[in-house]
Design a protein around this nucleic acid. Structure first.
Lengths: 182, 182
DNA sequence: ATCTTATATAGGATTTATCATATATAAGAT
DNA sequence: ATCTTATATATGATAAATCCTATATAAGAT
């Protein structure tokens, strides 16, 4: 499962609690290509420990509830290294909005336009959030940019170019539908 | 659930068996934005009947096993009409390959390039299959093009432009990684 | 005082999807 | 004769993801 390996990869950089993984890892760092539910993270951590790929130590806190900090084990690191070079099949496409558009011949132009406009708004927002992240990453012109930074920027650019393509496509759709005779 | 509505939409054009839905519907017609497992289709058909959105009639065949042909009911059509104009949130992004790239700083350039090349091959194949479909759709210049045909072409163009963007991005990644000092 | 937000972990229930397998008929190939 | 492919439906088991709820501490706001 990819989520297991995403967690292993995050943990291998720095040990983390479930809460850290959710708030720092999935909601911030890798949000542009993966997201995970809190419940799923805790359950996956249990599974990683069962498999011997991670272990945890309780960290007593006084200003907050105690934390269970998880670290990757040597066998976990081995598994991660194996997985990192394993071919990943393309994820299956499932786009609810395209069902609507494909089967939308019976809808009015106005209904189609509403659907398209709200998709456009949402994709523009996503694009915008990616652009905000991009501003915080070291630029490729930066002489101190690390190998990891370069790869981080490349993954972000994947999201940026996908979203840009979708925004352009949606704008085109809107023009086409506007000129459609009902 | 979107699968339920994809099936309702396919059925509302023409009554279909589970087998038809799989082979004609999901594997051919809408493959560029939805796919469904055979087992899932039959189970979803059961659910649609339970909900009163579809019904089936047995079609006795002599050259093949008998078929159960499903049709949309009036209440199913109502449900479909309602759903077709309901906002669909953007699908969550989950890209296993981007986990690898993002956390791939410890890999050799050669390993990174292998990953990128196999992704590129797969996306080019997908792009190619979309282009094959495109050739069979009526062109926008065709004066006899229907409203449905136009929408079909638009959904296909979504896939085409997404795949083109990914192919370009992967080519760029390959150039960047080639020039990366290990 | 009470409410909300942040910090922190976890289980129950359900949904959605996949994989494997079973069953059965008929056509066509070796 | 036997094997494979196409046609056709269905169930068991499991995986992956989401939603809801419970529990608990502490800081800050109204």
């Amino acid at each position: 499962m990819s989520l297991q390996h995403a967690i292993l990869a995050l943990m291998s950089e720095v040990p983390m609690s479930g809460y850290d993984l959710k708030t720092i890892g999935f909601d911030r760092k890798v949000n542009h290509f993966w997201s995970a539910d809190q419940a799923q993270i805790y359950r996956t951590l249990d599974k990683l420990v069962e498999e011997g790929w991670a272990d945890s130590q309780l960290e007593i806190q006084h200003d907050h509830p105690n934390r269970k900090v998880y670290s990757i084990t040597p066998s976990g690191q081995e598994e991660l290294n194996r997985w990192l070079i394993e071919f990943q099949p393309l994820p299956v496409k499932r786009e609810p909005f395209l069902i609507q558009l494909f089967f939308g011949a019976g809808l009015s132009n106005q209904n189609l336009l509403s659907l398209l406009e709200s998709q456009l708004t949402n994709h523009q927002q996503r694009l915008n959030s990616y652009e905000q992240v991009s501003l915080k990453l070291p630029g490729v012109d930066n002489p101190a940019i690390s190998r990891a930074d370069i790869l981080h920027r490349l993954t972000l650019e994947c999201g940026l170019s996908s979203e840009k393509a979708l925004v352009e496509w949606l704008k085109k759709c809107i023009e086409v539908v506007k000129n459609l005779k009902e």
